[in-house]
């Protein structure tokens, strides 16, 4: 079923909307949640929460890309669950991703500057745009979709060590960009 039709079902408050969403995007959402949480039970619960969130948010929201919108919801819900239950346990998944993303943190700036969400988003957007398509996909498949490094290495035909090196270079590049933009997190 086309996304526009599914969204129309939400707007009509027709509960078929959830069934259709589950059928079309269930696997996709589960995959993201599982990558982030590393727990099938938690992933299933997160996906279930996602359907509720979609029902509550649409309307008034009208996503132009339902897949991307659902993915964001899954990421946010996964993070919330991780915060509640797994933070202290240092489980893999989000813990690993956050640990890697620490390499992207700019050094603290000496000039006082309040973080503007827009500035960070704009800087990140511009940095992603300047990457080659394959590097951009690599970065987002790792840090948006949570794809494990081993799987990414296989996709790219690289050894895990080479891939890790490449990912480190990308993270360092982002860090430099954020520092140049004077962004303080």
């Amino acid at each position: 079923m086309e996304d526009t039709v599914i969204i129309a079902l939400y707007w009509e408050r027709n509960e078929r909307a959830i069934e259709e969403t589950r059928e079309k995007y269930g696997g996709y959402c589960y995959g993201i949640a599982l990558n982030l949480l590393h727990s099938p039970e938690d992933a299933e619960e997160t996906v279930s929460d996602t359907w509720h969130a979609a029902w509550n948010a649409i309307p008034p929201e009208k996503p132009s890309s339902l897949r991307a919108w659902l993915g964001r919801v899954v990421r946010n819900l996964s993070l919330s669950r991780w915060n509640r239950e797994h933070r202290k346990k240092r489980d893999p998944g989000i813990t690993e991703l956050l640990s890697e993303l620490e390499d992207c943190l700019p050094s603290p700036v000496t000039v006082e500057s309040a973080l503007e969400e827009k500035e960070l988003a704009a800087a990140l957007d511009a940095w992603l745009w300047k990457l080659s398509r394959e590097d951009r996909r690599l970065f987002l498949r790792r840090y948006w979709y949570g794809t494990p490094l081993q799987q990414l290495a296989k996709e790219r035909g690289l050894s895990p060590a080479r891939l890790a090196q490449k990912m480190l270079r990308l993270r360092r590049s982002l860090k430099t960009t954020l520092e140049k933009e004077g962004i303080s997190l």
Binding site: S64, R72, L115, L120, L140
Partner: peptide, 17 residues
Amino acid sequence: VLYDAITAVREEYIEEA
């Protein structure tokens, strides 16, 4: 904060990846 910013990247990139 960075995680959230990555979550909000534009849809074209999410689709592309």
